[in-house]
Amino acid sequence: MDEAEIRATFSKIIKTEDVSPGIAAIKTLMQMVKVSDVTTLQELRKTMTIATDYMRDMDYPAASISSSSELLLRFISLASLDGVAFSECKRIMIDRGQMFLKKLLDGRGKIAKSASKFILDGSRILTHSRSRGVLYALKEAMGQDKKFEVFVTHSAPDNSGELMKKELDKAGIPSTLILDSAIGYIMETIDFVMVGAEGVAESGGIVNKIGTFTIAMCAKEMKKPFYVMAESFKFSRLFPLGQSDLPLDYKYTSSVRKNMILDKEDPLVDYTPPNYITLLITDIGILTPSGVSDELIKLYI
């Protein structure tokens, strides 16, 4: 597969199926492994890394693409591949890849199940932008006949909150769209904040749609719990020390990055440090922020 093909497959998956860029990246990579004609593991690994770079360089959030690709690479090459022919190797790797993908897709159900426990009758929940994880959790709780109310921010600049509102309406969940600037106003009336994440850093902090950090700060000041819903494929070995320390391809789309003066551009994501996060609800369990690093160490070392 060449560059154009990879990009085409990737954007096709994102458009046709309702999946996060991370899953789409894994699917693209799996397809690439199937059709690739390389003959050694080394080459395969190399082509996969290059493909990941192509996908990161598109106008989609890069955070989950890089972490999920890295995890896939790690997962499929973990199998003992010594002393078998390469074709056999490839078959094993594809199997493992499918297994990995299945695990990830099942993960969302697990998250929804554990998150729904936090939603009680009469809860007032604030959420930011559009997150599939949060949506599933809310739907799950609705399915359990709980009565609650959701506040969704408009979430400039792409107003993805409006899409979230539409989806909530469709599911019959009572919701209110609020201004991004009304976070402080609404904070005293809500019970807790629930957001998704594009990426989870090694520190236990999250990278998410711009505005998340603001909400987290308000929530901390008002002493409201701040829950994050994230699949474990979003865990990455990144340790930002602050906003300026985030990688550029996380903050800006590739078309924006071509401009020389990035300071004047609006960033797409911000970094919420771990001390603002109450709990992370993931498919491997409900973790405190410090638990993330423990999981990552186990995974990578």
Partner: peptide, 21 residues
């Protein structure tokens, strides 16, 4: 904020995990 070890940037609280592995 972080401890820098040869295993990477870690939060302080990960010391027991490192000791375990």
């Amino acid at each position: 904020t972080a401890v820098v070890t040869e295993l990477g940037f870690l939060p302080c609280t990960s010391v027991p995990v490192v000791l375990r592995i």
